[in-house]
Computed example of a mutant assay.
Amino acid sequence: MGVERGHRRQDDLRSEVDNLRTALAGRDLIGQAKGILMERHGITADEAFERLVQISQTTNTKLGEVAALLVGSDGRAGDDRSADGQGGRRRRTGVD
């Protein structure tokens, strides 16, 4: 019984670590997207975040996905490939 509980605890901790890693990666991506908007539009970090949130809510797209689309499209203006570079059309989010 004690060994089984120890294994469960170990699995729970692994899951928590994975979740924290995912959250940090998303936070970094949102930070990069904010930086792009700040540079492009001469706005503050708070204003950039508000724009990302507004786009997320308006398009019913997760904030992390909006950020990924912006970061993935940076420097490739007019490129109509999907964010993964495999072709197809991107979902319009009004990020630019």
Rank of each mutant, 00 (worst) to 15 (best):
G2F: 05
G2A: 12
V3H: 14
E4S: 11
E4L: 08
R5Y: 03
R5E: 11
G6Y: 09
H7N: 11
H7I: 07
H7A: 08
R8L: 08
R9T: 00
Q10S: 02
D11R: 06
D12C: 01
D12V: 05
R14G: 02
S15T: 15
S15M: 08
E16A: 14
E16M: 11
E16V: 11
V17C: 10
N19A: 13
L20M: 15
R21N: 14
T22D: 14
T22S: 15
T22F: 11
L24P: 02
G26H: 15
R27Q: 15
R27A: 14
D28H: 06
D28P: 01
D28V: 10
L29N: 14
I30N: 03
G31V: 00
G31P: 02
Q32H: 13
Q32T: 12
A33H: 06
A33G: 03
A33Q: 04
K34F: 00
G35A: 06
I36P: 01
I36Q: 01
I36G: 02
I36V: 10
L37H: 00
L37M: 04
R40T: 09
R40Y: 08
R40A: 12
G42S: 14
G42M: 02
I43L: 08
I43W: 07
I43G: 09
I43V: 09
T44N: 01
A45R: 13
D46F: 09
D46M: 07
E47F: 03
F49H: 15
F49V: 04
E50N: 13
R51V: 04
R51F: 06
L52W: 04
L52Q: 07
V53D: 14
V53M: 03
V53Y: 08
V53T: 11
Q54R: 13
I55V: 15
I55N: 07
S56K: 02
Q57E: 15
Q57H: 12
Q57A: 09
Q57S: 11
T58C: 04
T58I: 09
T58F: 07
T58G: 10
N60H: 12
N60S: 14
K62S: 10
K62C: 02
K62Q: 11
L63I: 08
L63C: 00
G64Q: 13
V66I: 14
V66H: 06
L69G: 14
L70R: 15
V71Y: 09
G72M: 04
G72N: 05
G72C: 02
S73F: 04
D74Q: 06
D74C: 05
G75M: 00
G75W: 01
R76F: 11
A77I: 00
A77T: 10
A77D: 08
G78V: 00
G78R: 02
G78W: 00
G78K: 01
D79F: 05
D79H: 04
D79S: 10
D80L: 11
A83D: 06
A83G: 06
A83N: 13
A83Q: 14
D84S: 09
D84R: 13
D84M: 06
G85S: 10
Q86L: 12
G88W: 03
R90A: 08
R90G: 07
R91G: 05
R92W: 04
R92I: 05
R92F: 10
G94N: 02
G94H: 03
G94D: 01
G94Y: 00
V95E: 10
D96Y: 14
D96W: 12
